[in-house]
Structures are given as C-alpha cells and as structure tokens.
Design a protein around this nucleic acid. Structure first.
Lengths: 215, 215
DNA sequence: GACCGGTAAATTGGATCCAATCCAGAAAAT
DNA sequence: ATTTTCTGGATTGGATCCAATTTACCGGTC
C-alpha cells in the first residue's frame, strides 16, 4: 500500500494536536520550543513549522520574539465557531444530499456503527475520532474542498471542548440517536430534515459545552 | 508610534504575496526555496515558515520532499470561493449593521473616497488595496474575529483574479457606484439592502472574472 | 517604599550545514 | 524499441549553531 513515512513535522503536528486536546498543553500556556522539541526528540525546526500550521488554524497564537501560546476560547468564541459551523454545514449538507449515492450511505452507516462500538468502550478519544469521521464522511460529499477545509478548522478549534462533551454519558447516548436520524434523513434524500437534525445535534452540543465552561 | 521592526518571516510573507499577486510566481509553478531565498536575501528557514502560512491559506500547496507549488484555481474553485464568501459575508454584514455607529460610517465613507482616488490614478495594485480596506472596514464591524479571518483567507485566494477584474476600466467605474449604494444601505441601517448590494457587487465580479478565465 | 535604568539569563529567530528523498537520464535487459 | 534498473545531481527536510530580542532581576535614586 501507499504508506509513506511521515515527515517529522507531520508527526510533531499530530503530537501537538494530542497535547492540546488532552490538556497536556493548557490554554494560555506558553509553548517553550526547546522543552517540547526535546520531549518529542526532534529539533526545533519541524516543531516551529508545525506550530505555524496550528497558528493558521487559530489553535495557537504567535507573538514575535515572545513565542507561541495555546489559544484560549472564550464563551463568545465558542458561540462564534458554532454559528459559523451552522452556516457552512448547512451548505455542505445541502450539496451532500444532492450528490449522495447508496454506496455512500452504506459507508456512512458503517461509520455510525463505529461510533457505536467506540461509545461502548467509553474511551473519549476514540469516540471523538469516530464521531469526526462520521460527520466528515458526510461533509466530504459536498465536493467543495475549501468548504471542507474550513469546517475542519472550525472543528479543530473546539476539539478540546468536544471531548468534555463526550465525557458525559447522557450525551454519548443521545448522539447515537441523532446520528441515526441524520442517516435516515440522508437516506430519504431530504435536505430539510438532514439540516435540521444537524442543527439540533450542534445545538445540543454547544448548550452542553457552554454549561461546562461557564459553570 | 508602535513601529515594531518586522521579523524576516513577516517580510518574506509580504514579498511572497506580492510575487504571487503580480504573477511573478505563476500558478502551478514550483517554488524553489534556494533560489527564492537568495533572491530575497534571506535563508530558507524564514521562507519556509512564510510558506507554511500560505499553505494554511491555500495559496500554495505542499508535497513532502517535492516542495511548494503556487496553487492553481480552477473555475470550479473560483465559484466555490465566491459561494462561501456569499454565505459568510451576509452573516458579517448582518452583524455589522447591528453594530454600526455614525463614526464607523464616516470612516467607511473616507475609505470609499480613497478607492475613488486610487481609481483615478489607474494603478491596479492601489485599487485592490483600497477596495479591500473599504470592504474589510465593514466586515470588521461584525465583531466576529474568526469570521473576518476566514473572509481574509477567501479574499486572498482570489486576489490574483481580482486584479484582473480591476484592470478593466468599466469594472472600475461600476464598483464606485456599488460602493456608494452599499454605503447608503449601511447608513440607513437596512440589512436587506446592504446584503443585496454586496451580493450584486460580488456577482458582477465573479461573472467578469470567470469570463476572463474561461475565455 | 515605589519607580527607573541597566545587566544577565532565557527564549526565540535566522543562518549554515548535513542527511534523506526525489527525479531525470543513462545503461542494461528483455 | 520498450521497459527496467541504476546512479548522480538537485532539492527538500532536519539538526546544530549563532544572533537578536525579551524579560526578570537587581541595585540605585527620588
């Protein structure tokens, strides 16, 4: 198969995402390049290039000669991200329904099952990963690569909080049902219903998360 | 004043944007790091960091061990970008109208005048710059920083074509009128009209540009 | 005691150097 | 003649080293 060995910067990028996601690197905290590079066993060059990518995604901020800092999300930011997601995901879903094939539906159904199995294990990281794959399998169908890229950025920005969301058992139960509803709506090629289930899915998420933040 | 000396990577980033904008670096062309670094009189490190930023914006693509290439925009890409702009700019304008003050209006009117003077000189680069300032002065009012960031990315992606647009005299005339209409609609705090003038403004632009591309 | 200026340590930014990978073209095999 | 394999040059990726900037600390002054 086509298993290219990853470059160091790609590995470092993945590691950084995990560090941020798990809270190993906390919001607001400075990222000391020397320390992290040594921790990862690499030099600072690939680390800095990975940080530049995260900067572009808004995951970290950069102040010249002062360094990189893990971005902090206020409640306002959170709502902004979800508002933008609403706009863009509606567009993506609309286009997706227009393009969707039975083969696609089958694949998405498979991914929904994987969310199910991941949920039964209870491992939060596995659930978020599976959940993400499920949703982006749908978004990808819109055949608008830039739109998908923007959506990935928005999802990345709130990954930290999403894992908080999945940590609560009732939420885990609910998303399974909502995924099924989304799947049904897609199978029926019903744009309205597909969108509205996506909306409620998001709304539940943002409500739960902002309760955690402000609480 | 607060005139911090720019870091090398910031300078290089600005230079790269100009090179791409002016077509010095043509779409699809490989960016040979050594050659460009020498041309700019810097080492490859800051160049690579600047390229990483452009990669995040979709202005260049990166293939590991093969290098960076100036991104090519197909007609399909162009339409996608403008579709996304439509979605996001409507949101931005709606929020902007809600926030706009008389002071803001005055400032925007000033910027509109600057587009006017730039147009009279006929220098395309100056026109695009002034035009951009005018529009983003409006978008900024939405007080949604991420939204503005996304819009900047989308604008950057099609900057090359926008200068083609401004190169044609009839277009230059028309945008002045459209800007006035936008200004009027904003002054009246009329969301509907503000949005619809933005829409026609964009539609004229995309129609003209895609005629150039495919023609 | 608070404030200001200066100096040293820590940290980032950039340049240079070396290693790994890719690619074109020559040589060899079918 | 076409395809395959090898090899040298070019180019990118990463490590190390040096320079520039910031920041924290300390002593002095009002």
């Amino acid at each position: 198969m086509n298993v290219k060995p990853l470059t160091t910067q790609e590995e470092v990028l993945a590691l950084l995402r995990v560090e941020i996601l798990t809270g190993e690197l906390q919001p607001g905290q400075q990222i000391v390049q020397d320390a992290l590079a040594e921790k990862f066993g690499v030099s600072r060059v690939p680390l800095r290039e990975a940080l530049k990518i995260l900067e572009g995604e808004g995951q970290v901020t950069h102040h010249p000669h002062r360094g990189y800092f893990v971005a902090e999300l206020s409640v306002g930011d959170l709502h902004e991200v979800y508002r933008l997601r609403a706009l863009l995901e509606r567009e993506a879903v609309t286009a997706a329904v227009a393009n969707i094939t039975d083969r696609d539906l089958f694949k998405i159904a498979e991914l929904a099952k994987e969310v199910h199995t991941a949920t039964s294990t209870g491992e939060v990281l596995a659930i978020t990963a599976a959940n993400r794959e499920f949703h982006f399998a749908i978004f990808e169908l819109c055949e608008m690569p830039r739109l998908v890229r923007l959506l990935r950025q928005l999802w990345d920005a709130t990954d930290v909080y999403r894992s908080v969301y999945f940590a609560q058992a009732p939420n885990r139960e609910r998303i399974l049902l909502e995924h099924d509803e989304i799947l049904n709506a897609l199978a029926a090629r019903n744009v309205e219903r597909s969108i509205s289930w996506h909306d409620t899915h998001r709304d539940n998420s943002v409500a739960s998360v902002s309760a955690v933040i402000s609480g």
